[in-house]
Design a protein around this nucleic acid. Structure first.
Lengths: 194, 194
DNA sequence: CGTTTGCTTGAATTCTGTCAAAGCAGGTGG
DNA sequence: CCACCTGCTTTGACAGAATTCAAGCAAACG
């Protein structure tokens, strides 16, 4: 189970990990399984654990005044899932996280993360790189959200994340894109998609 | 001119900067002035310089298929401005950056940034912290963009960035929020704002 | 001043959301 | 094998939100 993560981490560093480093990683990640629909975070709670997804799919979402769910982020294998703000500051979250499929996770606490940052250089490099990627991806998503029509948003998404398009029911995709499921259905018909 | 930045940087570290560190910072930042309307980046070019804004205000925006401008980010004193993706990867940008007011900047190249990361611990800490903040801010902006009406988006913006609301013409704010200037005007009238 | 720049406003139009009903799988249990 | 869920998608009629376009006004500026 750890191998998936060790492999992943290896991509962020030029030097291979030492045995000591691998051991530290094992000690600081707790394996965890989730059934479909199970939660790892509820609004109001503090995000105590950050999850590396070994297998499965998850979503992070919030609920607006009217009780509607809006998906902030989707995650699959080799992605991370957690509320960064709540985790870092140890403040109550406004988000929910649950499993869209059966999941195998590796969980770390904030203490685990600090320990690894101190002891395993590749881990810090990974974190920095992830932040960079996150920022770039968010910038693109944001520009799409503020300037494209529902139609273009879906098109860009389908192009950018082919691995996600057919993995989830389309009301999930719609929620992620910030459009209505009915509208998405109409967009797809217009172009005879799937 | 460097003092503004040295002060700012001091906030990210527990230890005060040494004289050597201060000297390194001076060597790796080039002062630069901009008239209102002047560009520091045009779409198609590589973002060679990242700017720390000592004084003034800037915007980063892109132009869509129809020729309309959409503001991705606004910046004022003590903020950074640059296309992160283009800067890090040294790839052509799809964005424009120009001055909304007369500006005094400190510019660094990617080599400057690498040098400082290596030699000045506080600089690296600052970068990490900025990434974190950036991610959190973007997440909030994104949730607003995909789930709020124009009205609520403006309200949240006004609450979150009081320093920006009255500093810029409202068509600039509208573009930042991804809504039409006419729509924003109507929203404000509805609540008798400003 | 005359020009530019930004803001307001109305009317027409387009886009998107809402709601409700119906259809269509796939899975389960009798 | 059939009847019945259940979860998901499609569709139409309608309501509401936001944009577009054009005109007019006000303040700021050289």
């Amino acid at each position: 189970m750890y191998n998936a993560y060790l492999n992943y981490l290896g991509n962020f560093s030029s030097k291979p990990l030492t045995d000591d480093e691998k051991e530290l990683i094992r000690q600081n990640f707790a394996p965890f399984r989730l059934r479909k629909g199970q939660y790892t975070l509820q609004a109001g709670d503090i995000c105590k654990k950050f999850a590396f997804i070994v297998k499965g799919a998850m979503r992070m979402y919030f609920v607006d005044d009217k009780g509607l769910e809006h998906i902030v982020r989707l995650g699959i294998e080799d992605w991370w899932m957690g509320d960064r703000e709540s985790f870092i500051n140890q403040t109550p979250s406004r988000l929910y996280i649950d499993a869209l499929e059966r999941c195998e996770l590796l969980l770390m606490t904030l203490d685990n993360a600090k320990e690894l940052e101190k002891m395993v250089p590749a881990f810090r490099q990974m974190m920095n790189k992830l932040d960079e990627r996150n920022i770039m991806a968010n910038e693109r998503r944001l520009t799409a959200a503020i300037s494209f029509t529902a139609e273009k948003r879906y098109m860009e998404f389908a192009e950018c994340y082919p691995a996600l398009v057919h993995r989830f029911p389309q009301h999930i995709i719609a929620s992620y894109l910030g459009i209505n499921k009915d509208t998405l259905s109409r967009v797809k018909r217009k172009y005879n998609l799937k």
